[in-house]
Design a protein around this nucleic acid. Structure first.
Lengths: 197, 197
DNA sequence: ATGGTTCTGGACTCATCGTTCCATAATTGG
DNA sequence: CCAATTATGGAACGATGAGTCCAGAACCAT
């Protein structure tokens, strides 16, 4: 006995996410979010509570998208190597970040923000990053048998790859030549399994 | 026939820089800057014009500090290798970023900000990054003779190293284990000259 | 001493932004 | 039809923050 919702909550969160990602938390006003969501301001507040709540929802949604993307890191079938998987994963990630966002991971962008003082935001960022690193650990540990950078632990390799990925984004965003960035990625992947031979 | 300045302009800019770096452009209010500068608000405005002017001055000062740090990248004397220079440079840079700042390069932090739409800010960021990349190119190109990652151009190697450095900062800032980050750096440097032999 | 300049403290304006309130229209189940 | 819930538009509030203004004190050179 009630009027049903006129919108899809996930779609609403996606629109808020896109706005936060493009403009940043401080860079976007409620009016920007409301306009992007294509809904009334009151409805926006009913859905998210307040701006911080909307941002937390956006972070959660972003993490869900990331989780989906991590399926690219499943151990490859024999003809396909771990190195190829890593290369394609990073390339695809960078592509998504530039087409759907401002060219960097939302979690990293948020990590470079004073809002990290907020415990909930901090948790979302660190847990999201940890999740990606864990997926990298699984892939790399599985690939150890197929010969990948012998003496280094999977943990460290994951940290390296995670750093590489976000560093390439930073390189591009600070005006680096895209061709160089792409070549740097190929170089990194090549050296990654240099001692595999 | 005038009262002399009561402060050192460079010191003032350093204090503003520290505040912008720690709190971010949007995260700090004029009152924060004025307090950190230990000077009257009017004096602050006389010196910098407005908040944006203060930020541009801070960026310029930051770049000056970076330029000084780039002296670590001078070609090493024979017993010392290019790899060692790179390792120590990145380690020192990360150390400074965590002790004097929030754990990341101010230019990269700014690059992850909607203020990149401001042409002057954008120039400061991209030119600063280009300067560091150029210093890396010089070092790596000089080290090519001493055998460093054969078939890859110095440009690409510089992009790789620049990415690595900023990526490691991102890794730490998103909750990565510091020990893993340090190990990842050592690993990266090791593989960097794997084909030198 | 005097004039010109800079510092200091505080009050003040103006705009923006997050948030709330309200009155009204729409849409469902009973 | 009625009751309940939700959407909508607009007005309004309170807070914060950037930037300005002003009057007085400090300081220097002539």
């Amino acid at each position: 006995m009630a009027r049903p919702r006129n919108y899809d909550p996930e779609d609403l969160t996606d629109r808020a996410l896109a706005t936060f990602w493009q403009l940043g938390y401080d860079g976007c006003a409620i009016s920007d979010l409301v306009m992007a969501c294509g809904v009334n301001r009151q409805t926006f507040y009913n859905q998210f509570g307040d701006k911080r709540g909307a941002f937390l929802a956006a972070l959660a949604r972003y993490r869900a998208h990331v989780t989906e993307g991590l399926r690219l890191l499943e151990p490859p079938e024999p003809p396909r190597t771990v190195a190829e998987v890593l290369h394609d994963f990073i390339e695809a990630t960078l592509m998504v970040q530039t087409t759907r966002g401002p060219g960097a991971c939302l979690l990293v962008i948020t990590a470079y923000t004073p809002h990290m003082a907020d415990p909930d935001i901090r948790s979302a960022v660190t847990e999201g990053a940890a999740q990606t690193r864990a997926a990298l650990v699984r892939l790399v540990a599985g690939g150890a048998r197929s010969g990948l950078s012998g003496g280094t632990s999977a943990q460290v390799l994951a940290a390296y790859i995670y750093s590489l990925m976000n560093g390439l984004a930073a390189d591009r965003r600070t005006g680096g030549d895209p061709a160089d960035t792409a070549a740097a990625l190929r170089f990194a992947i090549k050296t990654l399994c240099a001692d595999e031979r």
